[in-house]
């Protein structure tokens, strides 16, 4: 019972981190049809900036998060204008893979040059670091905080996409980009805003998930595959799909590591192969990336 509860909380927290980081990638792939392997690099930049802000400038945790998210977006936007824009909606996946792998390598090299090769923790404030009493059991507060962040992100994104003017335009551009443009929607701006949103979410996920996915130079390479897999399993462009996939894969990975640690990622990828084989367009995808 005790094991089941700790597995459940850890799996849920891990799944929520995967969700916060991957959902941006999922929206990007649904809208811009770009297989972005550099997504993890942006999460890593966010983590490094937050770590630096807390440890060297002594900022509070919440303020550091805001600053790091904004900083990551500021770093990433020139890349969108110069590089990513070239590979949107291309049918050939190879240039997309190469360009984004290239950006990942470059970011890894530069980050290591500036911050060094060691692991960079993002120190938690006292409120979040202790255990939390839920009446009959103590749970790590940070895990609950991460789960709450994930839930709030999902709700806010749902509101943004389903209830706001921006969401209407974005969904129109996803369904038929050319038609949306013909109707006067400036898809270029939508792309830019979506990119900023995706990068911001990646950075946010990277910071709050730093306890579960530790920040180090090879972060971008280590988890690159995981984020891509989540999007593929959930279906590009679907919030509920990404949420379901994150929680499912988080559960598969955490359970596998608890019960059979010597198998490593075996169960995670076995689950991926089965799911992709049965649902090639994702659990809840619209089949945008055929």
């Amino acid at each position: 019972m005790r094991t089941i509860l700790s597995i459940a909380v850890d799996a849920l927290a891990y799944g929520m981190v995967l969700f916060i980081i991957s959902i941006g990638l999922s929206i990007m792939m649904g809208l811009m049809r770009v297989v972005n392997l550099a997504h993890g690099a942006f999460a890593m930049i966010g983590g490094y900036l937050a770590s630096y802000a807390v440890r060297s400038w002594g900022l509070s945790y919440g303020f550091a998060i805001v600053l790091a998210v904004i900083g990551t977006i500021v770093i990433a936007l020139p890349l969108e204008r110069l590089l990513f824009r070239r590979i949107y909606r291309k049918s050939d996946a190879l240039p997309q893979l190469l360009l984004t792998i290239g950006i990942t390598f470059l970011v890894i090299g530069i980050v290591n040059f500036i911050f060094g090769p060691t692991l960079k923790p993002v120190p938690l404030p006292g409120v979040l670091s202790g255990p939390f009493d839920i009446g009959f059991r103590m749970l790590p507060t940070h895990r609950l905080f991460v789960i709450a962040c994930g839930a709030i992100t999902a709700a806010a994104l749902w509101y943004l996409l389903e209830r706001t003017d921006f969401g209407v335009r974005l969904r129109a551009a996803v369904d038929n980009g050319d038609m949306a443009e013909a109707l006067g929607i400036r898809t270029e701006l939508i792309y830019l805003a979506t990119f900023a949103l995706a990068v911001g979410l990646a950075a946010f996920g990277g910071i709050v998930g730093a306890e579960l996915l530790p920040i180090e130079p090879f972060y971008a390479l280590r988890y690159m595959v995981v984020f891509l897999v989540v999007v593929s399993v959930g279906g590009a462009g679907s919030i509920t799909g990404a949420l379901a996939a994150s929680l499912l894969l988080g559960l598969a990975d955490t359970t596998g590591k608890y019960l059979a640690p010597e198998f490593g990622e075996f169960f995670f990828y076995l689950a991926v192969i089965v799911i992709v084989f049965l649902f090639p367009h994702g659990l809840l995808g619209r089949g945008a990336l055929r």
């Binding site: 490593g264 075996f266 084989f277």
Partner: peptide, 27 residues
Amino acid sequence: LITRFHGLPQLVLSIALGQLVGALANK
């Protein structure tokens, strides 16, 4: 397995198979 699919599922399957072999080699 891989050539049944195109695009993203194909890529992800190729990655997953590669990682599976890697995990097995470790185990």
